[in-house]
């Protein structure tokens, strides 16, 4: 039987998600943080598609489709914001952007 248990996909997704989360936590470059977030989204998408395949349903795929659309919109706005921040601060290090500290 040429089957792969769905649990493997879920484990892979969990690992990718954790790597993405770790990237968010340890990097100071907002562009890489952003990319890590994309990675986490991908990990989630992978589970969606895996289960859609298991249950022979298209809803999972359609959700992924929506996620990709939303991610595109998010990236467009997010990168515009980063550009603006860079223009204002001449720096995009997130550790420098702590003017909200208590």
């Amino acid at each position: 039987m040429n089957t792969v248990p769905v649990d493997y996909y879920v484990i892979l997704s969990a690992v990718l998600f954790t790597i993405g989360a770790m990237g968010v936590l340890i990097r100071r470059n907002p562009l890489i943080i952003f990319m890590s977030i994309e990675l986490m989204l991908n990990a989630a998408n992978l589970v969606f598609v895996a289960y859609a395949s298991v249950f022979q349903s298209f809803s999972g795929q359609i959700f992924v489709f929506f996620v990709i659309a939303v991610a595109a919109a998010e990236v467009a706005v997010g990168l515009a914001l980063i550009v603006q921040i860079f223009k204002a601060k001449k720096n995009i290090n997130v550790d420098e952007l702590n003017s909200l500290k208590g």
Partner: peptide, 23 residues
């Protein structure tokens, strides 16, 4: 991150669905 990986793998393995396979 390590703890999270361990936890999630443990959860997935403990609730394993071995008969759900993908071809």
């Amino acid at each position: 991150a390590l703890v999270l990986v361990v936890e999630s793998v443990y959860l997935i393995v403990s609730r394993a669905q071995p008969n759900l396979g993908i071809t």
